[in-house]
Design a protein around this nucleic acid. Structure first.
Lengths: 102, 102
DNA sequence: CTCTCACATCACTATCTGCTGATACCAGCA
DNA sequence: TGCTGGTATCAGCAGATAGTGATGTGAGAG
């Protein structure tokens, strides 16, 4: 089945800074301070983006004393991967399915 | 290797209407008239989105008389799928890689 | 040739979105 | 209990973006 991908998750990942955050978090679990160092972005800006990522269900927070650790939810990325794979597979056969000119 | 995904392609796919177009094109090759029928969007609006999709390298155009057929480039979607799969795989091991609090 | 139709481009507007500084909140430490 | 440092929230602004109507272009049909 061609389960249409959720536009919201993709839109959230479409921002360059957020995608960088996700790439960093794919390597290790980090807290905001680390992300500030790695990305060079302001803390406020990062906090906003982390909120967006959290509300999109892409990351989870894990308080650790005064720090907040962020970890990726791999199943979300895996789901995206699968849905894009389905789209790609379907697209390969779509070349012959040309609807007649109206 | 953790090849970072291209934010531009993802951002382009993040728009609901564009994602719907891509989903439709994954099923069959269509021209603008068909897309207007299927999506209910104005022709001008669709033309704008098709331009964005074309410039992002996601679709190809194929003139057919007065009509313009759009077809997906499956390799782009397949590439996305692969990159998200890599991110997901890396994220699964990242839970243990917790950097120490600063 | 002229008209029609499919599509692209232009100009404009309303809205959204990312970034920032100021500030509030909250946990641990002295 | 007051202080400090890490994080979240708020308000505001500038730039980006989606949508729309008017218009241009180009290929076929009559």
């Amino acid at each position: 089945m061609l389960t249409s991908v959720d536009p919201d998750v993709i839109r959230v990942l479409g921002d360059p800074l957020r995608l960088k955050i996700v790439t960093l978090l794919a390597r290790e679990t980090l807290c905001t301070t680390h992300l500030v160092e790695e990305t060079g972005a302001k803390q406020t800006n990062l906090s906003n983006h982390m909120k967006v990522l959290r509300e999109a269900g892409i990351v989870e927070t894990e308080p650790c004393g005064r720090f907040t650790y962020y970890k990726l939810k791999p199943e979300v990325l895996a789901g995206l991967s699968e849905q894009f794979a389905e789209l790609a597979a379907s697209a390969r056969t779509a070349a012959e399915n040309k609807r007649a000119c109206p």
